[in-house]
């Protein structure tokens, strides 16, 4: 669960990136965050990850009050989250398998668990046959699916995706969002930032529109392909 309570962010440069934003994303929700460039979408994400702190107001994520969370406790917060970036951020010297297994290793997961969990999530994103490939041998869409598997592997409560389809072909973008939808149906909360109105219209759901640091619109709309 994510809750923003009258949150403002002013960067040290003096830019007011967010102004008195309040919003609540419940467990199991799927929400799109849209808005023009510079509106404050990434700032919102950075707050959830506690990369930055709110200048005003309180942010609560999965039961952590972020303004009270000590720096050395940040790993505990992040272990409840899965993150997908626009630029994939895979490690080029590691295979698909290693890129995913890496996440569990660095949080000190048992070896046995890693051995069963990693192939499972790789097959969930449909890349079982590419487990031994290196990122450069994959298409953009495939790389993003690896990133998705990586975000999924520690069984997070919330997956945050900042323009996950920004660097891949529109046709493949739908696949990624389909995958996210599937993950959401299994109970994981999803927050996805996107520029692509087609995708939003196609899938529908909760839309949070940010404009110049404020929430301009926050409603649930029906998608074109509503089940």
């Amino acid at each position: 669960m994510v809750e923003f309570n009258d949150v403002s962010v002013t960067y040290s440069s003096g830019v007011d990136a967010l102004n008195h934003v309040s919003l609540k994303i419940n467990d199991g929700d799927f929400a799109f965050v849209v808005g023009s460039s510079g509106a404050g979408k990434s700032t919102l994400i950075k707050l959830i990850l506690k990369e930055i702190d709110a200048t005003e107001g309180t942010v609560t994520v999965n039961g952590f009050n972020l303004s009270k969370l000590k720096r050395r406790k940040i790993p505990n917060l992040r272990r409840t989250l899965g993150i997908v970036f626009q630029d994939f951020r895979l490690i080029p010297t590691m295979t698909v398998y290693e890129n995913v297994a890496f996440v569990l290793r660095v949080i000190d997961a048992p070896k046995k668990y890693i051995k069963s969990r990693v192939p499972y999530v790789i097959s969930l994103v449909g890349l079982a046959h590419k487990a031994k490939a290196y990122p450069e041998q994959l298409s953009g869409g495939e790389q993003q699916r690896v990133a998705l598997a990586r975000a999924l592997v520690n069984d997070p409560q919330l997956i945050i995706a900042d323009e996950p389809t920004g660097n891949i072909d529109p046709a493949l973008s739908y696949e990624i969002v389909e995958l996210l939808k599937g993950i959401n149906e299994c109970g994981t909360t999803i927050l996805m930032v996107t520029h692509e109105h087609d995708i939003v219209r196609h899938f529908g759901g909760r839309i949070i529109n940010i404009n110049a640091g404020s929430i301009a619109f926050d409603e649930t709309i029906g998608g074109a392909n509503e089940a």
Binding site: R72, P75, R79, L81, I83, F102, V103, V106, I107, R150
Partner: peptide, 17 residues
Amino acid sequence: RKEINIMKYVGATNKFI
């Protein structure tokens, strides 16, 4: 640096990094 960046995001402790 890429690895370290990812490690931070997925909740590796400072010690581990």
